[in-house]
Design a binder for these strands. Structure first.
Lengths: 263, 263
DNA sequence: CCTGATGGTTCAAATAATGGACCTTGTGGT
DNA sequence: ACCACAAGGTCCATTATTTGAACCATCAGG
């Protein structure tokens, strides 16, 4: 693993649940020695990727990230497109909706989301968390339509059991992927968070590769057979819209499926 | 310069004006050899800090940046606070307003801004650009209140002449800093962009160090003596509010100046 | 006034980065 | 059809940077 990899990895230890960490904590998390960790933290701080509290000496994420993320969004306003499509989808389903894109082989990163505010019992999105491929509707459907080498790399991992419903057997997961490829949708029934049902459709780039998914998530109780068709249709339309907004192209068979579902 | 520095520097070449660059362009910009540049780009891509267009092979900023920036903002919602204060300031002055924070020794990075939409002739903010210390009201006032070692480091640089009004002589700049320290405000009269007048007040962290500035910018024609006091008072109030929102503490003398100006 | 935790620094040894040369593909010119 | 050039990308002996055990300073609790 390169020096740069090891350095950038440090940034990943900062979560919303632990937004500041000290030198010793980084050292323990990374399993490296203190001197190297310290030099890396100093380099990241110099570059503006971290900032250090002058009193506690703890490190937190820095302003350069905000600046670069702004530049990215100004150049390629994908999040803005996503938000527009999500608004329409939310109007249809009145449940929490989100768009997430592949972030390396570890999972999906959420680009935009709308939290439901029309029900008392609703599903919250933590936009800073990576969504694992094996335990979420978005992850399953993204993996199902991803290119084979990528899928194989991900499936070679060992998966974590997050709830009692999480499937971690690669053979069974392969069946789920097969199912998603046939139907065009990924499903999760409490595999990521207990009692949360979710459906997702894949999003494609201009070269036809799958780059992420659009999904809706709700409490199990509200996902009835009656509502299912309406939800699938709305999600299919959103996926189709966003894919073409982004200049993407779905595989021919899926395009046919989507068109037949959109009323 | 460390390997990590050289690698992270590559990200800086991606601007809104050049959101995608190829290997050769990065190589020329960095002045390094092609093989090393390529390895660095690959590492950044693996980490999600860049993504590569599968067709053109050009590199652009990646999804990891969005994710980290979101985490940062969730943990320390400084931009949200800034936006709230900017809204009030905008209501008072009806001109473009922005909050920028120190980003290394190169300049200030804009955290939040509101573009004026009440005049035909207005000033636009390019939030992804770094504001130079010597040619902007925000830069001058931030430097004026910054700790001495930092100020000396910045003043040791050679400055670029951006317009016919840009002051680049360190001795004269030192006088401007002195003036800003006395009055509590930085000014720029067309030194960054021709015809754009700007006033800025400093922002402080909890340890009393200056971390950035809040400013308003307008066409020269609208900055009259009559409006000046109203503007200074509004900017002072905004700086005072945002500093305390962020848990910061202005120096005693400045606090007195601000309090006397706020009606 | 110990003890163990924190943040930070040093420098010889070990490892990873470097970059000139090379390969391949695509484009524009004649 | 052919050549010249620039693009993206790779190889590997040389070289420079990273590494990490041992170190120091400070603080909090017992």
């Amino acid at each position: 693993m390169s020096t740069v990899d090891k350095t950038l990895k440090l940034l990943g230890y900062l979560k919303t649940t632990s937004p500041e960490l000290g030198l010793s904590q980084f050292t323990r998390l990374s399993g490296e020695d203190k001197a190297s960790t310290h030099r890396r933290l100093t380099e990241l701080t110099r570059a503006g990727f971290l900032e250090q509290d002058p009193v506690t000496r703890a490190y937190r994420l820095g302003a350069a990230l905000t600046r670069l993320a702004l530049t990215r969004e100004q150049s390629f306003p994908r999040a803005e497109h996503a938000r527009r499509v999500l608004e329409r989808l939310y109007d249809s389903v009145r449940e929490t909706v989100h768009v997430s894109v592949i972030q390396g082989t570890d999972g999906l990163s959420t680009l935009a989301h709308i939290d439901d505010h029309s029900h008392g019992n609703r599903v919250y999105i933590e936009p800073a968390d990576l969504l694992p491929f094996h335990a979420t509707a978005s992850g399953i459907v993204t993996l199902a339509f991803a290119v084979k080498p990528f899928r194989d790399t991900v499936l070679a991992r060992r998966f974590d059991r997050l709830t009692s419903e999480t499937e971690i057997d690669p053979a069974v997961l392969a069946l789920h992927l097969e199912d998603a490829r046939r139907s065009g949708f990924g499903r999760s029934e409490g595999a990521y968070e207990p009692d949360v049902f979710s459906v997702a459709a894949p999003l494609f780039a201009s070269d036809g590769t799958c780059i992420g998914a659009i999904a809706t998530a709700m409490p199990k109780a509200r996902f009835t057979e009656m509502s299912e068709n309406r939800i699938l249709s709305a999600v299919a339309k959103a996926a189709s819209d966003l894919t073409s907004y982004w200049g993407g192209e779905p595989p021919g068979t899926l395009k046919a499926t989507w068109d037949s579902m959109i009323v």
